[in-house]
């Protein structure tokens, strides 16, 4: 089967983001950008499926600016076979991305789409579920384990308080949680090979998708800072202040 893996270009998880002084957003100029970490897990899972002989071809897709080609190259270096860039410079909300991906799915015909469970920039955690809805496919979100069983996928999901297992008919959507796997580091031979793998570029208009945002950002601000408190000298003193001063025990 063919597997589609959408990947997002986001501010690197090690970067401490700064809110712009005018409150219009966060500073993204001259900031290190990387592939969304959950998407890396999604790519890794697809590559493992291919190594097991379950998947035949892996297509990585990124919706974003031209520079998102870098993230596609990273996916290709990890083992994806080819890339598609849906090039758009403005804001793309999860609903718009889901619509773009639906159009790509229509062209490519994958049996499985694996996405990261959430992007670490907008923290929406929505694109996979929205794509499943638009396609009328089943969804296995927050997956910590997947296994193909006949024409269905057995998905172990991380839920509050433990794990849940569902069987989802193929074609299906899976969103990757942190513990689905540990993504590999791109090897040098694979980085070399990735240079030669094709990346196709399309525009939202080519796909007939209206990507106009539904949300208007009125302002972005820093959360109230917590003030550092004080050090206590002993366990005895700690318990005393918790009892008498903070009155929480």
């Amino acid at each position: 089967m063919k597997v589609l893996v959408p990947v997002k270009r986001v501010v690197d998880y090690n970067v401490k983001v700064r809110v712009k002084a005018d409150g219009s957003g966060v500073e993204t100029a001259n900031v290190k950008m990387s592939m969304n970490p959950f998407d890396e897990i999604a790519v890794e899972e697809a590559v493992r499926l291919k190594e097991k002989g379950v998947a035949e071809e892996i297509v990585a897709v990124s919706c974003g600016p031209n520079a998102a080609q870098e993230q596609l190259r990273t996916a290709l270096a990890m083992g994806a076979d080819r890339g598609i860039l849906v090039e758009h410079d403005g804001v793309l909300e999860p609903l718009a991305v889901a619509k773009l991906l639906k159009a790509i799915v229509g062209k490519e015909g994958p049996a499985l789409v694996i996405l990261g469970k959430q992007a670490i920039d907008d923290d929406m955690s929505a694109t996979g579920q929205m794509l499943a809805a638009l396609l009328g496919w089943g969804q296995g979100t927050f997956a910590s384990r997947i296994e193909k069983e006949g024409d269905a996928l057995k998905v172990t999901r991380e839920v509050d308080g433990g794990l849940e297992t569902v069987s989802v008919k193929l074609p299906a959507i899976v969103t990757a949680d942190l513990r689905l796997n540990e993504p590999r580091y791109a090897s040098l031979p694979n980085i070399m090979k990735a240079r030669k793998k094709p990346i196709e570029t399309v525009k939202p208009a080519d796909l007939g998708v209206d990507v106009t945002p539904r949300l208007r950002v009125l302002k972005v601000e820093e959360p109230a800072k917590r003030q550092a408190g004080r050090k206590v000298g002993s366990v005895e003193e700690l318990v005393a202040v918790l009892r008498n001063e903070a009155k929480v025990i």
Binding site: E70, Y185, A186
Partner: peptide
Amino acid sequence: TPQHEALQEAIGRIC
């Protein structure tokens, strides 16, 4: 080049 950056990234992660 993007390839150089990929190299630094991959080596950086191993280290």
